[in-house]
Write a protein that binds this DNA or RNA. Sequence first.
RNA 1: GGCCAGGUAGCUCAGUUGGUAGAGCAGCGGACUGAAAAUCCGCGUGUCGACAGUUCAACUCUGUCCCUGGCCA
Length: 324
Amino acid sequence: MAEQAKPKVLVIQGPTACGKTALSIRLAQEYQGEIVNADSMQMVRGFNVGTAKPTPQERQQVPHHLFDVVSPDEHYDAGGYVDRARAVIDLILRKQRLPIIVGGTGLYVRTLLGGLADLPGADAQLRERYQAILNEQGVKALADMLLEKDPKAVQTLDLENPVRVIRALEVLELTGEPIWLHQQRHEFADRPYDTLQVVIHADLAVLDDRIRQRTALMVKSGLIEEVQRLLMVYGDRTLRPYQSIGYRQVLEFLDGKTDYYNLEEEIIRKTRRYARKQLQWLRNEKQTRWYRYPEQEHGLTQDVGSWLAGEALPAVEDGLPSSE
RNA sequence: GGCCAGGUAGCUCAGUUGGUAGAGCAGCGGACUGAAAAUCCGCGUGUCGACAGUUCAACUCUGUCCCUGGCCA
């Protein structure tokens, strides 16, 4: 099938605190778009302040999807995200509007655009079993279990990473085939959309400064209170959303492990590191077009218009920031 | 002023009976296919507070001084 037959989907990515939310709303207004969240934490209900979720006022300006769709104690993952996101995108396309994927979770965007290997999802019972082995005997024991049945995993898997090893064991047990074999067949080749994949970025010094300011604002505007409120309903501190940046630190603060000043500094540090990690991921993404923001917003907006009109955009070097 | 405890990597600290130093955190680099704001991997030369002394050799012993914290005046 020709590339033009695929529906157009705009993607906006970039490190945390770089201004994705505001930019995407403007683009949605300009091009009759609707925003589809691609941020794993912003999907969670009740986690608002610390995730810098778009405010109710912002969400009124243009339709927003996939925010607040999971409960803090509910399991969700990239697979579930792809299903939901593709369904929402279909709805938007049917309305003849432009889906705009916005978010910082690189894996979610990659799998949304390229699909996931056709594999069973997480199996709670199996994981519980492997987790117990991990706790009692360490990763090494799990890795040995895996290698016994799948010796080739040495070359394809990080055997020191419990998350990866457990997943590999799970897939092996559920399908009878090693995970790398499934992945080899797939390779993110399931590409249903014609995309313009935009990455916005800024100098690290500027970004760092914005992160500091935003964190101070979060703490001042009720992050701690939000956590206290959440804890009253969801008292299990091992829930995944509590492990994320900001929330984990507030928990430590509430436990008396850090003081107020360090709470803020710690969140700033973790957020900065996270921004660098996001940038690292994005550098590996092919087919991306990088724009400095806010400086190049005008050019970016024009490029989106050209792309929608079916005009060819100048080629870009894959994954590299534009030189301007 | 006296007594006590300290002064070692950006921070918190470890350093056996003297052989010129090492962890955690931070930082930097990297990975990433149903936990992804998670998870994992790699990277540690720093006047060992200063100056003298003992010694073949001192972060490690001795002396003096400086600084910090605590207690007593």
